[in-house]
Structure formats: structure tokens, C-alpha cells
């Protein structure tokens, strides 16, 4: 464990908590893409299948459980409890356009052709593009609530910090996982224009609006 990965995990945890609290406290999931949340729940499900078979540390197991519980709780709130506030008219990105190519790629490009490894690879590739429905929804509505932009900033920062962690681990341990690194770079690049808007607008107290 290094400080970059710890900060990355905490940023990820913060993002998940921010979103869950936003939906719970405002009793509304307006402006939030349910499809992205379903994809994230799928990412954690396919990545943490070794939760009970491969104990790393209390921290590792606790975080995996928290991510799983919070992501499913968010999906539940959005599609059941606060379904009336779910903006399905703007959340129209076709998830199959992501899941199918990512599933095929996981079969073709992986470290080991075993079920657990292919599912892990699938989760890595899927996580890289899982935010697209959310970014697409914001581009359609042309704006995002400030709390949603904080959620996205924390979520985008997590994988950016993981990239720093991978550089650090490469130079200190000689460890690197090309699949995770390439997917992590793609994932972070997708946030770039949002990062720009967040820093130039939200941090100046303005509403996050996309140029129409």
C-alpha cells in the first residue's frame, strides 16, 4: 500500500458516499445516470468474486464489501425507492454498446484464460467506460447539480491517483499490470473535459453547465 493508492481508495469511497447521501437526503436521483450505477455494480460484482476466497487484509475486504453494498444500495434507491425521480428520458445511453465489446475484449486480451481472470479483466475494461452514460446524460441535459459534479470529480480523481500509484509501484517494486494501466488511463482521459469544466466553473462557485 502507498499513499497514492490510499488517497485513491478514499477518493473513490468519498465519491460513492457523496452520491448515496445525495440521493438519500434529497430523496431524488435527478441528474444521475442509473445506467452508470448499474455498470459500477457490475464492475464490483465481477471484480470482487474472490472476496471470500482470497483474503488480502481487513482493509481490502472491508472496502470491497463497502463498495458492493453502496453500489447496490444506490441502484436500489434509483430504480425502486426513488424511481419517480429517475430521469429515464435523459439516461438513454445503450449499456449493451459497452458491455458487449468489453466482454469480447476481456476474452481476447487478458493475463490468464481462466474464469476468474477473465471476469476481473472484464471489470477493469468495464470500469474504464462505465461513466460514459453519466457524462452522456450531463451532455444531454447541459448541466449537472453541484453535488453531482463533486461526485464526478472524486470519482475521476480516484483512478488518476491510481495511475500515480502504478508509476510509484513500478519504480519501487518493479510491479506493473498493463491491462489495469491502459484501462486506467482511458478511464481518466474520459474525465478530462469534465475536470476542466469543474476547475474553471464549479470551483469558482458557478453552476456546471456544458456549452450547448
Amino acid at each position: 500500500m502507498n499513499i497514492f493508492r490510499l488517497l485513491g481508495d478514499l477518493s473513490h469511497l468519498l465519491a460513492i458516499i457523496i452520491l448515496l447521501l445525495k440521493i438519500w437526503r434529497t430523496r431524488s436521483c435527478a441528474g444521475v445516470s442509473g445506467k452508470s450505477q448499474i455498470l459500477f455494480a457490475l464492475v464490483f460484482t465481477t471484480r470482487y468474486l474472490d472476496l471470500f476466497t482470497n483474503f488480502i487484509s481487513m482493509y481490502n475486504s472491508a472496502m470491497k464489501l463497502i463498495y458492493l453494498v453502496c453500489s447496490y444500495a444506490t441502484v436500489f434507491l434509483m430504480y425502486f425507492k426513488f424511481k419517480a425521480t429517475y430521469d429515464s428520458n435523459h439516461d438513454t445511453f445503450r449499456m449493451e454498446f459497452l458491455v458487449v465489446p468489453v466482454g469480447g475484449l476481456a476474452f481476447l486480451v487478458n493475463h490468464d484464460f481462466t474464469p476468474l481472470e477473465i471476469l476481473w479483466t472484464f471489470s477493469i475494461y468495464l470500469e474504464a467506460v462505465a461513466i460514459l452514460p453519466q457524462l452522456f446524460m450531463i451532455s444531454k441535459t447541459g448541466e449537472a447539480e453541484t453535488i453531482t459534479s463533486h461526485y464526478l470529480f472524486a470519482l475521476g480523481s480516484y483512478r488518476a491517483l491510481y495511475i500515480v500509484n502504478w508509476v510509484f509501484r513500478f519504480y519501487t517494486e518493479g510491479f506493473f499490470d498493463l491491462i489495469a494501466i491502459v484501462a486506467g488511463c482511458v478511464q481518466t482521459i474520459l474525465y478530462c473535459d469534465f475536470f476542466y469544466l469543474y476547475i474553471t466553473k464549479v470551483l469558482k462557485g458557478k453552476q456546471l453547465t456544458l456549452p450547448a
Binding site: 493508492r5 482470497n54 488480502i56 481490502n60 490468464d112 510491479f175
Partner: peptide, 10 residues
């Protein structure tokens, strides 16, 4: 081989 490396990252 890569899968010997324990996946310790979240």
C-alpha cells in the same frame, strides 16, 4: 506469470 501476483488492489 501475472496471475501469481496477488491482486491486492481494489
Amino acid at each position: 506469470h501475472n496471475n501469481e501476483i496477488i491482486k491486492d488492489e481494489l
